[in-house]
Simulated scan of single mutants.
Amino acid sequence: MNAVKKWCAVVLGLVAAGAHAQSMQIPKPSEGLMPNPGRGKSLFAAQCAACHGADLKGSDKGPPMLHKVYEPSHHGDPAFQMAASRGVRAHHWQFGDMPPVPGVTPDDVAHITAFIRMEQRKVGIR
């Protein structure tokens, strides 16, 4: 394949990927929901701690949430919604892909995220 054809294939691939990403809807919590870190703490314990650690410091199954890679400017709140609803491919860590979390609603994720953000602020992650 000559250079022009390779370039066209790359461009078409990027356009297709962008169109796919734009068609993905980010789950949203209920309008007017006030995320509650206390509720998020219990939801985190039930749904997330087995992999991310009860202390949010990770485990042999999943990464720590108290790490700069999860600061809001790098992984914003919508990233948590997407990860819970659709899963996420491994890209920062070598724990493998994260599967979707069945039964966790966007409201649940908003509460969990509020808890994680509160704990991150306590250790200086802003």
Rank of each mutant, 00 (worst) to 15 (best):
M1E: 05
N2W: 09
N2I: 04
A3I: 09
A3L: 11
V4T: 06
V4R: 14
V4A: 13
K5N: 05
K5R: 15
K6I: 04
A9M: 15
V10F: 10
L12K: 12
L12D: 00
G13H: 12
L14Q: 08
A16R: 06
A17Y: 10
A17T: 09
G18I: 04
H20K: 09
A21Y: 11
A21C: 03
Q22V: 03
Q22H: 09
M24C: 06
M24Q: 13
M24S: 05
Q25V: 10
Q25L: 08
P27L: 14
P27K: 15
K28G: 00
P29S: 11
P29F: 11
S30M: 07
S30V: 05
E31F: 14
G32D: 06
G32C: 08
L33G: 00
L33D: 01
M34S: 13
N36Q: 12
P37S: 11
G38F: 12
G38A: 14
G38S: 12
R39G: 02
S42W: 14
L43Q: 08
L43I: 03
L43R: 11
F44K: 02
F44W: 11
C48P: 00
C48K: 11
A49G: 05
A50T: 04
A50K: 13
A50G: 03
G53V: 02
D55K: 12
L56N: 01
K57T: 01
K57Y: 04
K57N: 05
G58K: 10
G58R: 14
D60C: 00
K61H: 04
G62E: 04
G62Y: 11
G62A: 09
G62T: 02
P63G: 07
P63Q: 14
M65V: 02
H67Y: 11
K68T: 01
V69I: 15
V69T: 14
Y70A: 06
Y70P: 01
Y70G: 01
E71A: 15
S73H: 12
H75Y: 12
G76P: 08
G76Q: 10
D77Q: 13
A79V: 06
F80D: 00
F80Y: 09
Q81C: 02
M82R: 09
A83T: 06
A84Q: 04
S85I: 00
R86E: 03
G87R: 15
G87A: 07
G87E: 03
R89H: 08
A90H: 08
H91R: 07
H92S: 04
H92R: 12
W93C: 02
F95W: 05
F95L: 01
F95K: 00
D97Y: 13
D97G: 14
M98Y: 10
P99Y: 13
P99I: 09
P99W: 13
V101P: 01
V101C: 05
V101Q: 07
V101R: 14
P102T: 07
D107P: 06
V109A: 02
I112F: 04
T113E: 05
F115D: 00
I116N: 05
R117H: 06
R117Y: 08
R121K: 12
I125H: 09
I125Q: 08
